[in-house]
Amino acid sequence: MIEAQALSKRYGAKAAVDSVSFTVHPGKVTGFLGPNGAGKSTTMRMIMGLDNPSGGRVTVNGRPYAQHRAPLREVGALLDAKAVHTKRSAYNHLRAMAATHGIPDSRVREVIELTGLGSVAKKRVGGFSLGMGQRLGIAAALLGDPHTVILDEPVNGLDPEGVQWVRHLANGLASEGRTVFLSSHLMSEMALTADHLIVIGRGRIIADAPIQSIIDGQGKARVRVRVDRPQDLLGSLAGEGVTSQVLEPELVEITGVEPRRIAEVALRERVLVYELTPLQVSLEDAYMQLTQTEVEYQSHDLPLTPATPDMQQVPAHMEGR
């Protein structure tokens, strides 16, 4: 269980995290979704006690991280893949971390096997690929068999097999009753892995809801229609608050009206409809809609920011730290 209350982090005048409150519950995978620079990593570093909040507080399993007697047994975290001395071997890195908690070598070997690092465990971490670095970071997170697992962009750099492995791991940990909190900017990945979503943009929580309700709530009916005279059909629908996009001469995508209504209008207008496909709103679309509002809202304060939503607007140092 992770609880944040009015948690803020400011760097000078810029608020990387702006008074966010949320709760991450055990027993399910909670996704932490947001564009680059939205404040995901900063929030996670504050949870782990590495950054001091400028305001508010955050607790893990009931108390601030640093106040746990055996922090690695409470929380395991992958914050960035290469939080490792490059000249040390993976095995020795894990051994040094385990030693702080009296975790036996047998557990070190266990997590090495679990993460599939067996063949490279004795090699220098400096030579690791991004994917192997991620696996080592996950191995370190699991060392203490923790109640709460925090993974920052765990699938970055992983091959498809690795991505699937992380997905199964996250779901497996959640089904054992643990709290699983993982961040990503990959919406498609979240759709497959997370049960619950917390969406952050520009340091603020935009949405905090079960994943299905985010998809449903943001989704307006969207229908793909093949029709012989699109202009006539769209003309007749114009009064009903629809938006449309002509993709091909006879193919349009209509948003904001049910398929049945389109068929009725087509029948009345005597246009020929030869395809009428309701489209499911993807999480990606829902996410774009959520974050766009946030960016547009912000742009009033910042006249220099272009009005078009641009995910790269936030200075890089906020994300890279």
């Binding site: 055990p26 027993g27 055996a70 922090p71 690695l72 047994r73 009296g102 068999d145």
Partner: peptide, 25 residues
């Protein structure tokens, strides 16, 4: 969502046996 399944009890006793950070460690 409000349902918060309880964590399995098996993990608590293990922490008693393996206390945490000490300066010696």
């Amino acid at each position: 969502a409000t349902s918060t399944p309880q964590a399995p009890a098996r993990q608590r006793p293990r922490q008693e046996q393996l206390p945490g950070v000490t300066f010696g460690r």
